[in-house]
Design a protein around this nucleic acid. Sequence first.
DNA 1: CGATCCCGCCACATT
DNA 2: AATGTGGCGGGATCG
Length: 923
Amino acid sequence: MEASALSRRDLARGRRGRGEAAHKENIFDRSRMAPKTPIKNEPVDLSKQKGCTPERNPITPVKLVDRPQPDPWTPTANLKMLVSAASPDMRDREKKKELFRPIENNEQSNTPDSLQYDMVDDNTADEFEKQRPSRKQKSLGLLCQKFLARYPSYPLSTEKTTISLDEVASILGVERRRIYDIVNVLESLHLVSHVAKNQYCWHGRHNLSQTLKALQEAGELQYGELMAFFQHKEQDWEYKFGERKKDTIPESQDRPLLDFPEPDCTSASASSRKDKSLRIMSQKFVMLFLVSKTKIVTLDIAAKILIEETQDTVDHSKFKTKVRRLYDIANVLTSLGLIKKVHVTEERGRKPAFKWIGPVEFTGKTDEPRGHSPTSDPLPGMQRGACTPYQIHTTGKQRFTRHSSFNVAQPSEGTRRKVSSEPSSPHQKRQACIVNSDEYCSKMINLAAVCRQKIAEDNRNRTCATKPTLSSGKNPGANSPLSLLPVPGDFDFCVNTLPQAVFPVVQADVPSLSLQNGVNSQTLHPSMPATSETENGKPTLLPNQPFLCFPSSSLFMLCGGLQENNLTETLPATGDGGNKGAETPAAVLQAACQKRSSRKCTSPAAPADDEEPAAKKQTMEQSDVPLSLVVPKKSFESPKAESTPGSGCTSAVQLEAFHLDLASPDVPVAADKDSTRPLDSQEQEKWPQNKDPDEPSPGKEHISKENASQPFLPQYIYVQPTAGLSSCNFLFSAKQASGAISLTASQLPSLSVPCVMVPSAALASFPLVCSPTIASPVSPVPDGSFSAAASMNFSVSSLASTTPVFVGTTAVVTPKVSPTPSVDHQQPTHPTLHLSPVLARSCTAVKLDSPMCVGHPVTLLKLQQPSSTPLTPKNIRSACHEAFFKTPGSLGDPVAWKKTEGTQTRNASSVQRRLEISSTSPD
DNA sequence: CGATCCCGCCACATT
DNA sequence: AATGTGGCGGGATCG
């Protein structure tokens, strides 16, 4: 009866026609149950639907769980009954919830809803009409509130509440589909976990802080990387990358990286859909908030970011779709009280945005790998690095096993998960994945924006380093590819040369130059394997080659010059700073770097650091501009469309590409280089490229060739590790520093190019490390993780410095050696960067195998700090961090990577993949 | 009219 | 093949 009535109404309203048929799912037909209550839910009348006559009886066996049949609605009848019974209660809740709602916009909507609800009962159909109408009542946010109302925020650990989707759907009177929307978001925050088919386990908010923290960390890292990537991308890469990426990325990596490596199950294989999943989007979205200083994220920005694609412009439709999804997510988050809707008025106008109103404490998180961070973590243990997230469950309370936390955790994942009871649900896979590398673009964007803001502020505040960046002009000398690194003097980065080569910098203190020098000095030996490792599988470092490691952010810097361009584009919109153009990039870089470095490094170690960081922080905070995230419009994207769909992001790919190159020199590399060149070229040219093209490693060769061919070559190639890999990023300077070259030439032509590895995770924390050369090629270690860790460690320890370095390609830093190289990073004076003294202090060469890198063992120079921390590979959490991003597997085996092979890029962003797929459809 | 976002088709994943 | 999941976007509502 009612149903029909309802349906009519609906129809009348014009609801979408589709409906008619629809309702397959479970709609509750409460109608039958209680005629009168139209209930909030909508009454969909199933009856008509599809032919079935629902009315048949609602009562049917409920499918609650099973839902044997297609006609769900009927089955649910039972539920309905329940519902009906409950309905009053429900209503109350709802009302209450509404109250809750405030979170969001609060006020507004409530009343109506509630009223309506009430009305419903009383009135009949007529009223119904009234009632039902509003969409609000049906809104996902309201639904979510209802949903949440059913479960305690902090359930006793003992009791594990299982949630039956069908049941809930029926109770709430909605289709199951809607419940999925809610649950997916909740799952991304670990409030629930998917236990089995239709079954979810309610965890409540116990882990929320941990989760958020993890997300924050992940977000930072990722972004950082992205940023770096971004730059690259923008610069040259775009196109090239795009292509490469395509190649590489797609397949292999995809998401695997982060995604879900779930603990056990996951094998990673499947994931197809999941990538996109709302779950992931949700996490990313949350990350945006967490990394945003302002805590405000506009929808469009978020959408852009989340559209990994990179596609620029891309489809408008896509954008729209993304936005729709974001609304869905936002509604749930709002219901959770984590965000609220706000409007940001920007240049362009007023834009819808959401502000994070949830806990931020963890924000402070430290991520540092190193030690436990100071920050207060709620959860003990967790924090360390990436691990934390995982732990979440474990940590204390929890019983819930099932789900996974972020993928990241690989480590234990399995264990944990299983723990729970679960049978195994196939579904396990799904866990939330944290972002992956994919989104570089988006991240980049964000980061850029953020950085930009920061920078701007920073600039204001401090002058020091900032600007230099891009301006390319700054140090010509510096320009050298590596030079970048050096720039900063303080920065952390250390350069070391290998035994042979040494970077003056390091030792000297000032490094800035060192890079350059280092470069020069370095010798490469022909060997090269470094790059080549890829091929082998093991990476070896080149002995002589210099390496630089720095935080991804740093990388950013490196690209700086390039970036600028890009950045500029991207950033433009933002108003804050004003920094747009050149500065921006730099700023960004700085910011990025700083942050990280500061955090990580922060520590006390470097005096200087404190200052700066603080300043930065301040700035950051201040900057709050909501917009921070604002992304430029698509600027970044546009250009390249051609390249590939995925082009934008490529970071991950790059790495692979990189590897590939080594392996097979041909192609890709060149391309990259080309692309790169442009940027740097100017400055770079100066440098002579000494390298020889001839020899050595393929990769190098390419480079060298290019160099040769082109004088400028300055570029770096950045490889992002993205996914799995370790998080290392490599930068290669296309051209080396002249000096390096020279040396090289004689010795190692092949290698001449310096590489920079940056572990993403690690990076974050520390500045850079450059090792000019590495000593032995170590075999790739099994523990890739370690390597990463190791690197990190050292870096961390050593680097106390906070300051980020900027490297602008162009501007970059001056080579100048600063007087106080080491220590004061900060001196205002420095033009650009500061080196961290620490680094300078001692760099030891360490060999790391970086897993990331493909395993080849790279030797990093370690800086010893005063305290030298041992680098054991493992120890560091940095490793964890890495892991965080990566899948375990990746970490572990370098080899695997290779296998991955072709892909190389695990990095590739899933997005890209998708894109590609779509367009191409690889699969 | 733009912002929101409900609704449910339909494809993919899993069983 | 059935069913669970959930991407996706049309188009209805809201403001």
